[in-house]
Nucleic acid binder design. Structure first.
Length: 213
DNA sequence: GGCCAGGTGTAAA
DNA sequence: TTTACACATGGC
């Protein structure tokens, strides 16, 4: 059949593009990107379904807790109640509040944080690992960064590939991309992977030939 | 009732 | 330096 070898991220990207995966979706997959809400969501979604996170974000919003200053100053017990449904609420509530405070301390405000923050800075914060750091850079700060989540791992595993760690898989994903007009951004790539895996998981048949390698 | 979801930190080996 | 486990909820 197709016979296209997928041996780097760019050929995978091109194959996914043919499937029209984002036809009825916004081009940017994370809801409310470039906001404090996205930042909070990145931590809340760790090892949890997004539907739980939506409830938590709604609760935080209703309590005026989606700004850095109100989050940092809020009673921890209130934050816990707001985010309970997302699981791991003790760790996550503390991580979120600590992060809000240290952003204010180190950058002054959220806009400066978006502009100035580095991956290393994010990784040095408690509760932020490689995936959360890249998600925040990509969807919170508008950087052209490839996010590697469980969907990505499962997809490349299905292609017969295995990687020892996050950075190796990320390097593979980025391989082959050329900075020309055809390269939209890695957020788009990530969004297509998620859509592909969601459709596959539900047993739906993708509207064209399956990926192979 | 067990399994798992858009991970991360830490304690043992 | 790896591996194993804890963290917690709710839907299937």
């Amino acid at each position: 059949m197709a016979g296209v070898m997928i041996d780097d991220g760019y050929t995978l990207y091109l194959q996914l593009q043919k499937l029209n995966l984002l036809e009825n979706k916004p081009p940017l997959w994370w809801p409310n990107p470039y906001t404090v809400e996205m930042l909070v969501g990145a931590i809340l979604t760790q090892n949890t379904k997004w539907t739980r996170v939506e409830t938590s974000l709604e609760n935080l919003k209703n309590n005026n807790l989606l700004s850095l200053s109100t989050l940092a100053q809020a009673d921890n017990a209130l934050v816990v109640e707001c985010i309970r449904t997302s699981g791991f609420f003790n760790a996550k509530s503390q991580n979120i509040q600590r992060l809000a405070q240290v952003i204010l301390d180190d950058f002054g405000d959220f806009e400066t944080f978006q502009e100035m923050v580095s991956r290393e800075w994010l990784l040095s914060q408690k509760g932020i690992g490689p995936e959360s750091a890249d998600a925040i850079l990509c969807y919170g700060c508008g950087r052209d960064v490839m996010v590697v989540d469980k969907y990505t791992q499962q997809l490349v595993l299905a292609l017969g590939l295995e990687f020892d760690n996050y950075e190796d898989l990320q390097s593979w994903c980025v391989q082959g991309f050329v900075r020309d007009e055809r390269h939209q951004d890695f957020a788009h790539f990530h969004g297509m992977i998620v859509e592909y895996m969601k459709k596959n998981k539900k047993g739906k048949v993708i509207n064209t030939e399956p990926l192979d390698r």
